[in-house]
Structures are given as structure tokens and as C-alpha cells.
């Protein structure tokens, strides 16, 4: 097994704890989470943000990366399914490989579901940050493969939606192949006599 610990460099992890206004801070003691993050291994810098995803928040990440020479970034905010691309781009702009960023989901998986349990939510948030930092320490830079896109589109189905989409794309200058299983295009709409709301012919 190839070891993934970056042995050739000293690990410098930055943790950014987001309040998300009151979305997170309303149910989680983010100050305590930030304080806890400072005790985690290789964490060299902890910053609390009001809104990490907004420009000022992202600028704080970029500044900290440069100032503290960070080589790993943990953003403790919302679900990676929403903002992973945002923060990958952010650390990339700060000069880091985008795969050196990790997120902890303190909002969808924590503050929003435990609004009446501040202690429990805070304890959980600490664990989620610890988990993200642990993972971040093993993250490695990755190069994305880029693949050329074939210059043709396929439309499956020759009803009104398929015809319309195919025509639009053809008008924009793209090659389009339309596949229809029946002998004529037109689909269900062509079986109708008049259509609402215009009361005109379907064909």
C-alpha cells in the first residue's frame, strides 16, 4: 500500500469554522469548536467566519493560506455536496491543490437537526472537525484528468421535448442525432387534436 502521509513536508492545517449567520452558531458553540480545533494535531491556524462562503470569508481563507503557509485547509461549514466546488476553487486560487481541502458538515448534519441540544451538537461538531482534520492530514494533491468532449449531442426521444431540444442545439451550431423508436417523430403530442391553452392544432 502506498503511504499517503506527506512525509516530505511539514503539515500545516488551517481550520475555518463558519457561523453561517445563526444557521450554525444558533445551535453550535462555534467558539468552543474553534478553540477545540486549535488542540488538534498539525493545526496551525484557526479562523472563525460569519459566512465562509461569501467573499470576505473566502478572502480570509486565502489570506491565511499565504500568511501561515498552510498546506491543508479544513472548512467546517455546510455539506460538501453544496460548497465543495466553491472551497476547492478558493484554495486553488490561494495556490493550493484543490484536493487539499476538506469539509466538516456542521450545518445539514448538525446544527439544523439538533437545534435544542446545544451541548450534544457542539460535541458532535468537535468530532466532525476532528474527523476532517484527521482526513486532511492524509490528503494528497491530485491532478484531474481532462477529457475532450465529443462534438455531437444525442437526443433520445422525438416528442415535443426532444424535437425542441434538438432544434435548439442544431440552431446553435451543434451536431445532433435524434433517436426515435417509432416511424414518425411527434410523440404523444402528435396524437392530440387541439392543445391548451391556445386551443390550436398540436402539429
Amino acid at each position: 500500500m502506498v503511504s499517503n502521509v506527506a512525509t516530505d513536508e511539514e503539515l500545516r492545517v488551517g481550520v475555518f469554522v463558519c457561523d453561517c449567520g445563526l444557521n450554525i452558531a444558533g445551535a453550535v458553540d462555534t467558539a468552543a469548536v474553534a478553540e477545540y480545533a486549535e488542540t488538534l494535531p498539525d493545526v496551525t491556524c484557526v479562523v472563525r467566519n460569519k459566512y465562509t462562503c461569501a467573499d470576505p470569508g473566502q478572502n480570509e481563507i486565502k489570506d491565511a493560506v499565504r500568511q501561515h503557509n498552510l498546506n491543508r485547509v479544513v472548512v467546517a461549514s455546510c455539506t460538501p455536496r453544496q460548497h465543495e466546488p466553491t472551497f476547492r476553487q478558493c484554495v486553488y486560487e490561494a495556490g493550493l491543490n484543490p484536493y487539499l481541502m476538506e469539509m466538516a458538515n456542521l450545518r445539514e448534519h448538525c446544527s439544523w437537526v439538533h437545534p435544542d441540544d446545544r451541548d450534544g451538537a457542539t460535541a458532535k461538531a468537535k468530532d466532525l472537525v476532528a474527523s476532517a482534520v484527521a482526513r486532511a492530514r492524509f490528503l494528497q494533491a491530485q491532478e484531474e484528468m481532462s477529457v475532450p468532449v465529443s462534438q455531437r449531442a444525442l437526443v433520445i426521444g422525438g416528442g415535443i421535448a426532444g424535437i425542441e431540444a434538438a432544434l435548439e442545439m442544431a440552431e446553435a451550431g451543434h451536431k445532433v442525432t435524434l433517436v426515435e423508436k417509432t416511424p414518425s417523430i411527434g410523440g404523444v403530442m402528435a396524437q392530440l387534436d387541439k392543445t391548451y391553452p391556445t386551443m390550436d392544432c398540436s402539429i
Partner: peptide, 29 residues
């Protein structure tokens, strides 16, 4: 209905246009 289908078809076509015009895509590593 038909109107919504036409709207969605137009939106899909413009999405495809964006993808084809970009010429290449990055695959997550």
C-alpha cells in the same frame, strides 16, 4: 405540459451547448 416541456428542452439544449463549447471536461481525481 407542452409549454413546460418546451421550456425544459430549451434549458437542456443550452446546458449541452455550454458543455460542448467548453471542449473538454475535468474528471474528478
Amino acid at each position: 405540459d407542452i409549454k413546460e416541456s418546451v421550456c425544459q428542452a430549451g434549458a437542456a439544449a443550452s446546458k449541452v451547448g455550454g458543455l460542448l463549447n467548453a471542449g473538454e471536461i475535468h474528471i474528478e481525481a
